[in-house]
Computed example of a mutant assay.
Amino acid sequence: MMLSKANLQIKGWQLFILGFVLITWHLASRSLNVAFFIGEPLIVLDRLIDWLFVNRDIYLHLAITLLETGLAFLIGTIGGTACGLFLGLSPKTSIVFDPFLKAFNSMPRVILAPIFAVWFGLGIWSKVALAVTLVFFVVFFNVYQGVKEVSPAILSNARMLGANRSQLLRTVYLPSATSWVFSSLHTSVGLAFVGAVVGEYLGSARGVGYLILQAEGTFDINTVFAGIVLLTFCALALDALVGFVETKLMVWRPKHDDSQRL
Score class of each variant (00 low, 15 high):
2 M>N: 14
6 A>I: 08
7 N>M: 12
8 L>C: 11
9 Q>H: 09
14 Q>E: 13
16 F>G: 05
17 I>M: 10
18 L>H: 08
19 G>H: 12
20 F>I: 09
23 I>E: 04
24 T>W: 12
28 A>T: 08
29 S>P: 00
29 S>Y: 05
31 S>E: 09
32 L>S: 13
35 A>N: 05
36 F>W: 09
38 I>V: 14
38 I>R: 03
41 P>L: 03
42 L>C: 00
45 L>R: 03
47 R>I: 10
48 L>S: 03
48 L>Y: 15
49 I>V: 14
51 W>G: 00
51 W>K: 03
53 F>M: 13
54 V>A: 07
55 N>M: 04
55 N>I: 02
59 Y>C: 04
70 G>F: 14
71 L>V: 14
74 L>C: 09
74 L>A: 13
79 G>K: 01
84 G>P: 03
92 K>V: 04
94 S>Y: 07
95 I>F: 13
96 V>F: 15
100 F>W: 15
103 A>C: 10
104 F>A: 12
105 N>E: 15
105 N>Q: 14
106 S>H: 11
110 V>H: 10
112 L>H: 07
115 I>F: 07
120 F>E: 02
121 G>L: 12
122 L>V: 01
124 I>H: 04
125 W>H: 09
127 K>G: 11
133 T>H: 04
135 V>I: 12
138 V>G: 00
138 V>H: 01
139 V>L: 05
148 K>T: 01
150 V>W: 11
151 S>K: 14
152 P>D: 06
153 A>E: 13
154 I>A: 15
154 I>L: 15
154 I>V: 14
155 L>H: 05
161 L>I: 06
163 A>Q: 08
164 N>Q: 09
170 R>H: 07
172 V>F: 11
173 Y>G: 09
178 T>Y: 05
178 T>C: 08
181 V>I: 15
184 S>N: 08
185 L>W: 03
190 G>Y: 02
190 G>I: 15
190 G>N: 05
192 A>N: 01
199 G>I: 04
205 A>M: 08
209 G>C: 06
210 Y>N: 08
210 Y>K: 06
213 L>V: 04
214 Q>F: 06
214 Q>E: 12
215 A>P: 00
216 E>R: 12
219 F>T: 13
219 F>I: 15
224 V>Q: 00
227 G>P: 00
228 I>K: 00
228 I>T: 11
230 L>S: 05
235 A>M: 09
237 A>H: 02
241 L>R: 08
242 V>R: 08
243 G>T: 12
245 V>T: 12
249 L>C: 07
258 D>W: 11
260 Q>F: 10
